[in-house]
């Protein structure tokens, strides 16, 4: 098992995400909560990094900051070569639109839209013509095995199928960073494996990076790296390309 020094392991051009000394505080005075306490982390291009740790350790806060939906209190967050801390709110919105794909725990699909319309949402947000967006969404849905459910409503799909639509939506605009929050927590073991298989097969590309927040140890073998968090800090980063990560299972995860 190899433990990285997250600071010096990679050069700047190799990393999709570089986090240095990031802290995040919520509240103030007696109610001050330190969710992150000086986090350092690198996510290289072409890697699928799993962020694991007990509930409340700061995984969600960290991934929110990396995805640009939350502002760090201190520290440096470089994503795809851009300093998120230096960006204005509107710039972050555009950055997310163009570069980040999201897969959420509860899918957050739009129930009024069909499968293909849901998958096309990021392209429509990006200003694509509807017909072109639908065409692109159809292609990726085909790859995900949902070619026969294009016009179904979301409520007509199983949980596994809904998660596949969410993956299609996250990847349709070819983002260079994919952020997945507990993508398998609502799925049974088989669907969980299928979901991670799809993510690692389609999303992991040399010029992209994938971060998966998960508690599900059954899917650890899809990881290229596993970063273990505890009490607002990264405790270890394991390289799974050279070492099996699932046995023995990581503590507290």
């Amino acid at each position: 098992m190899t433990l990285f020094d997250p600071v010096d392991a990679l050069s700047e051009t190799d990393v999709a995400v570089r986090v240095r000394g990031v802290t995040k505080e919520f509240g103030s005075g007696d109610w001050l909560t330190k969710a992150l306490r000086g986090v350092d982390l690198d996510v290289p291009y072409g890697a699928l990094l799993m962020l694991v740790g007990p509930s409340g350790c700061g995984k969600t806060t960290l991934v929110s900051i990396v995805a640009g939906t939350l502002q760090a209190t201190e520290g440096e967050v470089i994503v795809l070569g851009k300093d998120l801390a230096a960006m204005k709110s509107s710039q972050k919105v555009r950055f997310r639109r163009d570069n980040v794909g999201f897969v959420f725990q509860s899918y957050n699909l739009l129930p009024a839209l069909t499968v293909v319309e849901n998958a096309a949402v990021p392209l429509i947000i990006a200003g694509w013509r509807r017909s072109h967006a639908i065409e692109a969404a159809s292609e990726i849905l085909d790859q995900l095995g949902l070619g026969n459910r294009m016009t179904s409503l979301i409520t007509e799909l199983s949980g596994g199928q809904q998660q596949r639509v969410a993956i299609a939506r996250a990847l349709v605009h070819e983002p260079r960073l994919l952020v997945c929050d507990e993508p398998t927590s609502s799925l049974d073991a088989e669907n969980g494996r299928i979901t991670l298989e799809l993510i690692s097969k389609i999303a992991v590309q040399p010029d992209r990076a994938v971060i998966v927040v998960t508690h599900d140890s059954r899917v650890y073998d899809f990881a290229d790296q596993i970063a273990s968090m505890e009490d607002g800090q990264i405790k270890s980063v394991r390289d799974c390309r050279t070492n099996a990560c699932k046995n023995p299972p990581l503590e507290n995860s």
Binding site: A67, T69, V93, R96, F102, N108, I125
Partner: peptide, 16 residues
């Protein structure tokens, strides 16, 4: 609200 949040996370502007 989560759907709206998801849209915002995905880069939908407040204007939209």
């Amino acid at each position: 609200i989560k759907q709206f949040g998801a849209l915002k996370a995905m880069g939908t502007s407040n204007r939209t």
